[in-house]
Design a protein around this nucleic acid. Structure first.
Length: 785
DNA sequence: CAAACCGGAATTTTT
DNA sequence: TTCCGGTTTG
């Protein structure tokens, strides 16, 4: 336990009071801030809500605020609590802060919700009812724990899917609810509550906590231990939260506790100040428990008179912002905010309609090649989509064209199977009761312990009420012997590792466990071995970075910032669990970036393509049933638009492969919600057919780019796309791009041909009658020379 | 124990 | 269509 009277926080007590602050507005820290930013940075100590629009310099404000508070002696490093959602954001804050001020970063509480909760729980594990060695279950581990539980309870997957139970548990925790807080409305819910209860018992027995538990347990720790709570309430004079719109119920409750709430809505005047920074228009994580409503609640409960609005955008040109503002005004539930720029109009958004997802991909790639020829760096080009499945067509086209690209998403480093196996061995060294890890590697690499034996072991452990590792002697026969040998092997590893530096310990485990040997013998094992080598390197780097000292023995206790002790191994395991690592070794830096709109949040690019702008896809059909689902989709579109600095493309395709069959789509309603005079249709505007004044699709009609040489391809979409295989109808081969004649509709151009045989259909734009789908078996279409 | 086979599901994601 | 997980088969 840290000493409760720590000379924490504020300089008056810490004895490091600085000279009277230079409060003049020309203080070097304040240089270049606009009036709103300045107001936020220099606000006197009181609660505040900062509504920070996209690209408004939010991170700068947050970090400068902290720097300002420190530099002016209003608070010491120990008195600041700054919370983010991602490690990346926390890291960035720290980096920028240390660039502004010479600081001892180690004493500062800047981190993710989960990282900080973890820190609290480690420091006060006994009060929280946790063993000192408790370990963290990631999502995968949690699911296997749930599956195991269901099996033990004799509930089969038919009756209750493991994923459903997992989601149930997580949502309950996000709302701060324990099993006894839940009311069973029906038998199914009753079952889930019952299993939630048993899940908790299982985790407790095994000494593991899932992500939700980190949050909930530390909330309860503060709630139920008054001296401790008051200690931290006194300590943290300034609490800052980033991305406040993404907080869930529990996270908000946690913040309120630290801010001095004693009981529902009643606050102790403990003199601290909470600065919540967020953007309700960028709230896109309701599906994982985020509650935009926390912003309005915050205003009410913390007595905010007027939020500080950061509406000056430093990222995008006028047309982009106008489109974003216009779109988001279709949402009803908003705090209200309007982005402005001083960067000039720039060029209008380019809207393109294509016949199929395939042609969309082709078109995008052609356009990308032109951008590259114009000198736009590849990493400044992003292709965004609503769902991951859409990346396939794009990847195919990029690959064929030889354009280097990088897809975001997929498995992260610490989530790879081989890495998880290695980590499971390491976890068992620290905590032999970790049954999830035990089961993961008990027969991996294969060592003759089959399903039957494991079954027996689980049975025995259940009956004895002990961990699997402690039950091995209870299993007889050949299986029992193999199990005992396995546990003995772990013991040997533990002993051998005791005197080693972390990286050497990891290497020893890789060898002794047989993992390396196993993958060496596998055909596709090379990459896995590389990753395991990478793990050794990561352990080494971790020790260096965390300052554990080069020669610190693996098990030697090392003091952390608050005088707590953790072994390097335990710290490394935490690191692996809380920071799942990069998305993939970046295959070549200079690459076009492909990602979902969600993944693009917080990023910016010179040129952005938003693809798949179709009803059912974006907005996604599944979202329409959810409460406020459409508004969230619209916010998602808002996020997508505001990623672009200069040039923004919006594409949609009439047909798309969806679950293996072709689906016909109409354009997204979001296209209709954009200001027409900020759009430049590169294909015929919908509903106007060819009769309308030719807009077009020529270079001449394009917006004048005042920032970057335009030089875009301006291709006619369908005509430029690769011709499809001919489909013959009534003897004549109808192909994409071809001019055709129909006895009733007259002349037109084929935009797409799809299907085969009797089902073959063509999408034709007729001069007089607009776009039509025609069955080739029926329609009398003839090619025009 | 690995390969082969079948059925079902297929937004979005960080910790 | 593709991917995953589960089961069956060699």
């Amino acid at each position: 336990m840290p000493r409760m009277n720590d000379a924490l926080a504020w300089p008056q007590e810490g004895g490091d009071a600085r000279a009277a602050p230079a409060l003049s507005p020309d203080h070097p820290l304040l240089r270049g801030l606009n009036p709103e930013q300045l107001a936020a940075v220099t606000l006197p100590p009181r609660h505040a809500l900062v509504l920070a629009g996209a690209g408004s310099g939010k991170t700068r404000v947050l970090t400068t605020r902290i720097a300002w508070l420190l530099a002016t002696g209003q608070v010491g490093p120990g008195g600041v609590l700054a919370v983010t959602f991602t490690n990346k954001a926390a890291r960035e804050m720290l980096t920028r802060l240390t660039a502004m001020l010479p600081l001892n970063v180690r004493g500062m509480w800047i981190g993710t919700f989960h990282g900080l909760c973890h820190r609290l729980l480690r420091a006060h594990h006994a009060s929280a009812g946790l063993p000192a060695t408790f370990q963290i279950l990631d999502t995968q581990d949690q699911l296997s724990a749930v599956k195991r539980l269901l099996k033990a309870a004799g509930v089969d997957e038919e009756r209750l899917a493991s994923k459903e139970l997992q989601a149930f548990i997580n949502h309950a925790k996000e709302d701060g609810l324990r099993p006894h807080d839940l009311v069973p409305r029906d038998p199914h819910t009753r079952l889930k509550i019952e299993l939630y209860q048993r899940y908790e018992e299982q985790c407790q027995r095994e000494g593991v906590v899932d992500f939700g538990e980190l949050m909930l347990r530390s909330y309860e720790l503060l709630r139920d231990h008054r001296p401790l709570r008051e200690h931290y309430q006194r300590r943290f004079r300034h609490i800052l939260i980033d991305e406040f719109q993404d907080t869930n119920r529990l996270q908000y409750a946690w913040l309120k506790l630290l801010a001095g709430e004693v009981e529902d809505g009643r606050f102790l005047p403990c003199g601290n100040a909470v600065m919540a920074v967020g953007d309700d228009d960028q709230s896109i994580y309701a599906f994982r428990g985020a509650r935009v409503g926390n912003m309005a609640d915050f205003v009410r409960e913390f007595g905010i008179e007027a939020p500080i609005k950061l509406e000056q955008n430093y990222r995008s040109v006028g047309h982009v912002l106008r489109a974003a503002n216009h779109l988001i005004e279709h949402n009803r539930q908003r705090l209200g905010k309007r982005l402005r720029t001083e960067r000039g109009d720039g060029e209008p958004l380019r809207v393109v309609e294509l016949a199929s997802d395939f042609e969309e991909a082709q078109w995008v790639v052609e356009e990308i090649r032109q951008l590259l020829r114009d000198g736009v760096p590849a990493h400044e080009i992003a292709v965004l989509y609503r769902s991951n499945a859409q990346s396939r067509a794009l990847e195919g086209a990029l690959f064929q064209a030889g354009v280097p690209y990088r897809v975001w998403g997929g498995l992260r480093f610490f989530e790879r199977a081989e890495v998880k196996h290695a980590l499971a061995y390491l976890r068992l060294l620290d905590n032999p009761r970790d049954d999830t890890s035990f089961l993961r590697v008990v027969n991996f690499p294969p060592r003759g312990i089959g399903a039957r034996t494991v079954e027996q072991l689980q049975q025995a452990a259940r009956e004895a009420g002990c961990a699997l590792a402690d039950a091995v002697t209870l299993v007889g026969g050949r299986g029992g012997a193999a199990l005992t040998a396995f546990v003995a092997q772990l013991d040997v590893m533990r002993e051998r590792g005791a005197g080693l530096a972390l990286a050497d310990l990891v290497r020893t485990v890789l060898d002794d466990s047989g993992l390396l040997a196993h993958y060496r013998g596998e055909r596709d094992g090379a990459e896995r071995i590389e990753n395991l080598e990478e793990l050794v390197a990561a352990a080494h780097a971790f020790v260096q970075q965390e300052g554990f000292g080069r020669d610190a023995p693996g098990a030697a206790p090392v003091a952390d910032a608050d005088g707590e002790t953790t072994s390097p191994l335990a710290a490394f395991l935490t690191h692996a669990a809380l920071e799942s690592g990069d998305h993939q070794a970046q295959a070549g830096q200079e690459a076009v970036q492909l990602m979902t709109v969600h993944a693009a949040k917080g990023l910016e690019f010179d040129a952005v393509f938003i693809t798949g702008l179709e009803e059912g896809l974006f907005p996604h059909e599944n979202s329409l049933t959810a409460h406020d689902g459409l508004e969230e989709e619209r916010r998602l579109m808002y996020v997508a638009i505001t990623r672009a600095r200069q040039r923004l493309y919006l594409t949609w395709a009439q047909t798309r492969m969806f679950h293996g069959s072709t689906r016909y789509h109409i354009p997204s309603r979001f296209l209709d919600e954009l200001p027409a005079d900020s759009l430049q249709w590169l294909s015929p505007p919908r509903g106007r057919g060819w009769g309308a004044p030719q807009p077009a699709w020529g270079r001449s009609a394009l917006g004048q780019d005042d920032v970057r040489p335009a030089g875009l391809a301006g291709l006619p979409p369908a005509a430029a796309a690769a011709p499809q295989a001919p489909v013959s109808a009534a003897g004549a081969a109808i192909r994409t791009g071809m001019a055709v004649f129909h006895p009733k509709f007259g002349e037109g151009q084929v935009l797409a041909v799809e299907g085969r045989g009797a089902d073959a259909r063509a999408h034709v734009h007729f001069r007089r009658h607009g776009p039509k789908w025609l069955a080739l078996a029926v329609a009398r279409l003839t090619p025009v020379e």
